[in-house]
């Protein structure tokens, strides 16, 4: 393995399913956090809804597409669960409530009490046959040089980035409307927006629901890509990583979440590859291969710190917007 392969690998990861899932959930989070200013720390719960909606429906004998739709509906229900009590609270309380609701949902799903319904810690496997049956791409490898994908992976990538594009376009369309303007007003100062006669609560709930449905689709997509759903993927750390992607790309920008997710997974994969290369060749002696998984996220953390210091508005944000402090 040489440096070129490391680079190709990192590029493959940055357009691959992991990046797509974080990009799609990130587009939703960006609507909530970047535009409406909602500190939603439970985005992973919406992903769980999407993943379990798909896998449980197939397990119960239903079609996969119905499962995806049910996952989206479940996301709406969760938005109400978060929203009705919490959206009237101040921003920091919403953060606490969302983080706990997210954890509660994961713990309920993995508990032995609900194992007859949810399969507990085992989750589900091999339920996405339909998704690959409708793949129109003939078998083979696609790409150039060392940058190639199997027809299966390519199908996930095409569908996935297609969904990211549709979601980003929807956000773009919404945010250039008067509705979007109110949402940005809510982010800046919700009392001011109230004093102008707008029902702030409704706007927050709508933003939470739309962003949540996007995350549910991201969850379904991840489930179909890995063909495995386990409750212990859906830790809060996933939400934080989505935040990292959104902030990296630029919160409150249309393309920020997608670019941020790509950049994030590029950094993760590239730093891992380079370190691995260094360890294999004996240049890096103070690390072992077992440390890599942790180290790569430390490097992401470092990149984020540098970004916040030198470019607080993210890769795509407007500079002057980053300089205004209320």
């Amino acid at each position: 393995m040489d440096a070129v392969n490391v680079l190709l690998d990192a590029l493959r990861t940055s357009v691959g399913p992991q990046a797509i899932v974080f990009a799609l959930a990130g587009v939703g989070l960006n609507l909530q956090f970047g535009y409406a200013g909602l500190l939603n720390f439970g985005q992973v719960a919406f992903m769980l809804a999407g993943a379990y909606g798909a896998s449980m429906t197939v397990d119960a004998g239903g079609p996969l597409w119905l499962g995806i739709v049910l996952g989206m509906l479940a996301a709406l229900v969760i938005a109400m669960l978060f929203g009705l009590p919490a959206l009237r609270l101040r921003a920091d309380y919403l953060a606490i409530v969302t983080i706990s609701v997210g954890e509660i949902i994961r713990l309920v799903v993995r508990s032995s009490t609900f194992e007859p319904i949810t399969n507990g810690v085992f989750g589900y496997r091999d339920f996405a046959g339909w998704f690959y049956d409708i793949n129109p791409i003939p078998g083979g490898r696609y790409g150039f040089g060392g940058f190639t994908f199997s027809e299966r992976r390519l199908w996930v990538i095409v569908v996935g980035w297609g969904l990211v594009a549709v979601a980003s376009l929807l956000v773009f369309w919404l945010m250039r409307s008067p509705w979007g303007r109110v949402l940005e007003g809510v982010r800046e100062d919700e009392d001011a927006v109230r004093s102008m006669g707008k029902n702030v609560f409704m706007y927050k709930l709508q933003a939470l629901a739309i962003g949540g449905v996007m995350a549910a689709v991201a969850g379904s997509l991840r489930a179909m890509d890995t063909e495995a759903v386990r409750p212990d993927f859906f830790f809060t750390i996933i939400t934080f990583t989505i935040y990292a992607a959104v902030i990296l790309g630029g919160a409150g920008t249309i393309l920020g979440p997608a670019l941020g997710a790509m950049a994030l997974w590029f950094v993760v994969s590239f730093s891992e590859g380079i370190l691995r290369l260094g360890i294999d060749s004996g240049v890096v002696e103070f690390l072992s291969l077992e440390d890599l998984a942790a180290i790569r996220f430390m490097i992401v953390g470092l990149v984020l710190i540098l970004l916040v210091v030198f470019r607080p508005q993210g890769l795509l944000g407007r500079r002057e917007a980053g300089l205004i402090d209320d």
Partner: peptide
Amino acid sequence: YQIARRGLVRTFQLTKALAR
């Protein structure tokens, strides 16, 4: 918001410009 819609509109002691 309902009171504001009825036509009784206020401003704030500490101004609330929507900065961004």
